[in-house]
Design a protein around this nucleic acid. Structure first.
Lengths: 182, 182
DNA sequence: TACGACATGTAAGAGGTTACATGATTCG
DNA sequence: CGAATCATGTAACCTCTTACATGTCGTA
């Protein structure tokens, strides 16, 4: 039930069409926070418009509708951001995998942990590169969302990398230990 | 579509009733990785049993059914853990909030970031305490899942805390800057 | 003029939550 | 004996995904 707030948030940064919002969900936003396809976005925009939280401010030549957030919408968004009751829904397939790693035998564990360590290192490097590029002073209104979020992603990647590395070390130590049981 | 694998993973650590599995989802597992209520667990266990991935190994006095994973189930779980195609679904309300913080005015931003910094510090401390207790050598089969997962959580909390702290510092710097515009 | 990007929508179905419904056992 | 906990299940509803369906505009 966070989709409406995700949309309000994006529109609070800048007006956009449903199509543009859908692409937004394909980048960082959908990567760490919330995913949504156009098939859920268009109906949700219509619902938000019916509740006067957003409003069509322009119609393009291809039948595109540009939405903007209203004052009520801004109030709703603010209230949602300030009155955070717990952390709500969490559903992360990658983290679930990490939980279940100990059910594998040591060789398989090593294989999965190595893959995680490599992937997080690569992802961190790539993201760092991307952030370096986009920090010019006259950045788009949505770029600030991306900057804060991107740095959050950086920290998560790094933490995950360190976790996997440490788990690998302990795994090796334990195997070495069991091979020398005298 | 990760619920079946979450259940397989828990059963791979130790046999359990649906009721016990439901409680498992209320702790660390549901906190960071995947949530599920009994109303989705019971039907899913029945489906897994129909596919011979799990099996009823005991019936308790109150009509409880203890499930265990089968060889096929173990193979399915292993294959899912090893052939990780991307990171799949991510849906995290807390992270979404973090993304949208820049849409608030500076005072509200400070308020939200301060709350995040405090909560993550408290959560990290509490989790650290909890992990310290449960690390005895003859731990339950499920405790190892919890240990690795718990350390993952520790890293995430700390990374989030540092992120929020840095964001607060920059926010203060920017406000101080704009108040001295000569 | 054909292809790719832009742009919006609906329908069917999967997956999950909330609420409803039931009953056994244990403990104070 | 009453309340809390254990224990399972179904039904209605909501949300989101996948697939289907349509049409415009720019450009090579």
């Amino acid at each position: 039930m966070s989709l409406p707030h995700a949309l309000l948030g994006l529109l609070a940064a800048a007006p956009a069409t449903g199509y543009e919002l859908a692409r937004e969900f394909e980048s960082d936003l959908g990567r760490y926070a919330w995913q949504a396809g156009h098939a859920s976005i268009y109906p949700e925009l219509a619902k938000l418009a019916a509740r006067d939280l957003v409003r069509v401010v322009d119609q393009g030549p291809r039948g595109s509708k540009t939405y903007d957030i209203t004052e009520q919408g801004r109030a709703e968004l603010r209230s949602w951001l300030l009155h955070r009751s717990g952390d709500g829904v969490v559903r992360n397939e990658g983290v679930l995998r990490m939980f279940l790693i100990p059910t594998l035998d040591p060789d398989d564990q090593r294989s999965v942990l190595t893959a995680i360590a490599e992937e997080t290192a690569a992802a961190e490097a790539e993201l760092r590169e991307r952030l370096k590029g986009g920090t010019d002073p006259r950045c788009s209104p949505r770029a600030e969302l991306g900057l804060l979020a991107g740095r959050f992603g950086l920290g998560q990647y790094r933490a995950t990398h360190e976790w996997a590395t440490r788990a690998l070390e302990e795994l090796d130590a334990r195997v070495a230990d069991s091979r020398r049981p005298n």
